[in-house]
Design a protein around this nucleic acid. Structure first.
Length: 139
DNA sequence: GCCAACGTTGGC
DNA sequence: GCCAACGTTGGC
């Protein structure tokens, strides 16, 4: 099963807001980048992703699950853009900072480290395991 | 707040 | 179809 990473600025929509949505989840709206959109289109219900706070915090704070596959983004009339829906699964016991990721052997190729501007990214199995371990979760 | 990296747009 | 100009993201 593939893994993903979603970036959000916590002062706009952070983990607290995501968690507050509970089982209902929330549409991941606002993506206006083809690569990021294509990543969302590749997602399937049940896929897991990290929730990353950009700008403020700069750390991976939780895990979300895809609960609806890509569908039109209600925040635009432009048919090019669509989005998935995700729900919070659990917070990381210990958030994993960007700095920590940069230092960790095995994460050198992580999109978070290499392609800082991509807002929705794929995460490899190995990267997922490493970050989960750093975050205080068993794989 | 600055600026590097990168994506998109539009003139040719 | 190339590429310069421009806009945006996000780390610092």
């Amino acid at each position: 099963m593939p893994f993903w990473l979603f970036k959000s600025e916590p002062d706009v929509f952070g983990w607290a807001e995501q968690a507050a949505k509970g089982e209902a989840g929330e549409e991941w709206t606002g993506v206006r980048n083809y690569q990021a959109r294509n990543n969302m289109r590749a997602m399937r219900c049940g896929d897991l992703g990290f929730f990353y706070h950009s700008n403020i915090g700069k750390e991976i704070v939780g895990i979300v699950e895809v609960i609806r596959e890509s569908a039109p983004d209600s925040t635009t009339d432009d048919p090019r853009w669509d989005c998935v829906m995700v729900k919070a699964v659990r917070p990381l016991p210990r958030p994993v900072s960007l700095d920590r990721c940069k230092l960790e052997p095995g994460l050198e190729q992580m999109a978070l480290v290499k392609n800082t501007r991509l807002s929705v990214q794929p995460v490899s199995d190995a990267e997922w395991q490493i970050v989960c371990r750093l975050g205080g979760l068993e794989g």
